[in-house]
Amino acid sequence: MSNGPLEIKAISGHAGPVPGRDTSRDYDVCKLVDVTTCIGCKACEVACLEWNGYPFRETVFDNTYQTMPDLAWNYYNLIRFNEHTASDGTFSWLMRKDQCMHCADPGCLRACPADGAIVQYANGIVDFQQENCIGCQYCVTGCPFNIPKFNPETKKVHKCTLCSDRVGVGLEPACIKACPTGCLHFGSKDDMKDLAGRRAQQLREHTAHTNAGVYDPPGVGGTHVIYVLHDISNPEAYGGLPANPRVPWTVKLWKGPLKWLGNLAMFGGLLGVTLHYLRFGPKQVKEDHAEGKS
């Protein structure tokens, strides 16, 4: 898998080939979610919980095929369910696997003030390091996909790691392994883009989904999780997938020009009062002569 010293070469007592061996993969990893073949079985949700060691959390039943209303700090991966009526009157269920998109330009990382609380690996994975997190939730504000979730008890924020701990040793993410329909794929970004492109083309040419396309939003520099959608012109229908996500301009303003303006103003202020003191000095009161000026 990812090229690294911990790529497994041989496994003792193992029937069959070493998983992932001899597959050509670039350094950039990518998860492809083909929503057109997702049946909403939630195997990936269970695999995610199992791998990350979380118990199943409480939920509410809201008469849909969605496990819970939203992602949670210990629920990284949610199949969003939407009933959709197309303009021609056809009705469908849309299932979309929602999780961190592993943006190439991650708004969470830009916003985070804590040294080392968020890292972006060279393979594209954006990972939160809870031991360095101060719990300010700036990442919540910075993320255009509404992903990071706060644990009020530990005051740490969590989200999908793209199984960096598995990928780092040459395994694929847990959700990929669990998917029974093959709607999830994992590989290099180039391979996944290629595969996604061919699948979208197939849909356009051989099905009624003439608007099918690949979701790899350029506003955040592309993502390391990409979707094949039946209708690329309406990502919002899939449980609010933003049509054109970008790092909020206010976040860029705050972390960029405002910072420099502020630094300039603060240094300017300190310099100003120092110069004033050097030029004019203090106001002293002459005690016996009340009108006195020093």
Binding site: G269, V273, P282, K283, Q284, V285
Partner: peptide, 13 residues
């Protein structure tokens, strides 16, 4: 900044 400067260094007393 101005407040502290005036209160400590500039306006004696």
């Amino acid at each position: 900044i101005i407040h502290v400067y005036m209160g400590t260094a500039m306006v004696r007393g």
